[in-house]
Computed example of a mutant assay.
Amino acid sequence: MAGILDSVNQRTQLVGQNRLELLLFKLNGRQRYGINVFKVREVLQCPPLTVMPRLNSYVKGIAHIRGQTISVIDMSLATGGRPIKKLEDCFIIITEYNRTIQGFLVDSVERIVNLNWGSVMPPPKGSGRFNYLTAVTEIDNELIEILDVEKILEEIAPSSTIVSDGIVTDTEMQSDLGDRIILITDDSSVARNQVKRALEGLGLPIEAKKNGKEALDYLVEVAASCEHSVTEKIGLLISDVEMPEMDGYTLTAEVKSRPKLADLHVILHTSLSGVFNHAMVEKVGADDFIAKFNPDELAGAVQKWLHTD
């Protein structure tokens, strides 16, 4: 199992082609779940865990792996299920999200599958605000649930959305934006709300969409009412990378290839990590790349690009 990600560095060529690869796993029961391979650093048999006082109830314990101390989260318990038993038979998926490293305890790990984002759909309507899904897809005639890991981590360790004093000038940002709005797109409700709270706290009006396709459709609609460019009504686009139907790289490439949209500045704001992200920023024509979630860095980038013609 340790070798399941040996070729992960070669997989970066998928980025920017509206494709992804999912690592499939199970918790308790037959349902299969997925997590993006680019978030995964390692998969290993569950090592002995050290139980520490005052840990969050979702945290099973602490593991010492390759010189690092890593919190191990029971993914079943964290998503409302039964706790995972028989740890010696289980696996840990070591991931990197939002500049932090953590382990997720799962019952079993299966395989990696290659998909087009177009075949990955938003969760069904009516699934409720308390679900932990960002998307679903079908593999081997079975529904695969893609979990909202950012929501799990936010519930364990909430992020601050307050921009520090002196980082930006509110009045200058509002002056640069004028009557325009800022468009954000992210499939995670937690991530959308983080950005909204940070920027609305600076007095900036926000429009939010759930994926790249929704954002592109909205931009095309707005551009149709503009004389020259969509920038007459929209000051900036802040986009996640991983999204169902259309990812952020594809969205950026579409924006930059359309005459009425091409002048719009695009900031990619993502929990993905790795040098390939910076290469893709240049490849698809994005103006900036920021790792989630630091409200000061986000506000600084927004101020920079609002002030840049």
Results as ranks from 00 to 15, higher is better:
253 A>T: 07
290 I>A: 12
100 T>E: 06
226 C>L: 02
100 T>Y: 03
97 Y>M: 11
112 I>T: 10
26 K>A: 13
75 M>S: 15
38 F>N: 02
280 M>K: 14
18 N>R: 14
227 E>K: 03
211 N>W: 00
73 I>V: 15
244 P>G: 02
132 Y>M: 07
288 D>K: 03
24 L>S: 01
262 A>P: 11
231 T>Q: 01
48 P>K: 14
53 P>F: 06
253 A>D: 08
84 I>M: 13
301 A>D: 04
161 T>R: 05
255 V>M: 06
160 S>K: 10
5 L>K: 04
19 R>T: 14
46 C>K: 00
73 I>P: 03
92 I>M: 01
64 H>Q: 14
118 G>T: 11
44 L>H: 01
281 V>I: 15
279 A>F: 05
301 A>Q: 03
54 R>W: 04
195 V>I: 12
154 E>C: 04
167 I>H: 08
282 E>K: 03
130 F>H: 04
307 H>R: 09
286 A>L: 07
293 F>W: 05
96 E>C: 03
230 V>Q: 06
288 D>C: 10
309 D>E: 11
108 S>G: 06
205 P>M: 13
108 S>P: 07
190 V>R: 08
99 R>F: 02
234 I>S: 00
252 T>N: 01
157 A>V: 07
172 E>G: 08
131 N>T: 15
28 N>K: 15
202 L>Q: 01
7 S>C: 11
185 T>D: 08
41 R>H: 10
171 T>E: 08
131 N>Q: 15
199 L>P: 06
267 I>V: 15
107 D>Q: 14
78 A>W: 14
134 T>N: 11
214 E>L: 05
262 A>E: 15
204 L>V: 06
134 T>Q: 07
97 Y>C: 08
270 T>Y: 05
135 A>G: 01
52 M>K: 06
88 E>K: 11
206 I>K: 04
50 T>N: 08
30 R>K: 13
190 V>E: 06
286 A>R: 11
200 E>F: 00
204 L>Y: 00
207 E>C: 04
176 D>E: 05
297 E>H: 06
158 P>E: 08
220 V>D: 09
282 E>W: 03
45 Q>M: 04
155 E>A: 13
242 E>P: 01
215 A>K: 04
3 G>W: 04
255 V>E: 10
116 N>T: 11
167 I>L: 08
25 F>Q: 14
148 D>E: 12
307 H>A: 15
209 K>L: 12
285 G>F: 08
6 D>K: 06
253 A>F: 10
242 E>T: 00
79 T>C: 07
302 V>M: 06
261 L>Q: 00
178 G>F: 14
36 N>K: 04
229 S>T: 15
28 N>D: 14
122 P>D: 01
210 K>R: 07
57 S>T: 02
257 S>Q: 09
175 S>P: 02
48 P>C: 15
160 S>Y: 06
131 N>G: 10
283 K>V: 15
92 I>G: 01
177 L>R: 07
133 L>Y: 09
210 K>F: 08
229 S>I: 12
193 N>F: 03
116 N>W: 10
13 Q>I: 09
13 Q>D: 10
178 G>H: 13
255 V>T: 05
27 L>D: 11
51 V>E: 00
51 V>R: 00
141 N>K: 11
185 T>F: 07
127 S>K: 00
152 I>M: 14
152 I>D: 12
201 G>D: 13
26 K>C: 07
199 L>R: 10
75 M>H: 13
152 I>E: 09
147 L>P: 06
231 T>W: 02
239 S>H: 01
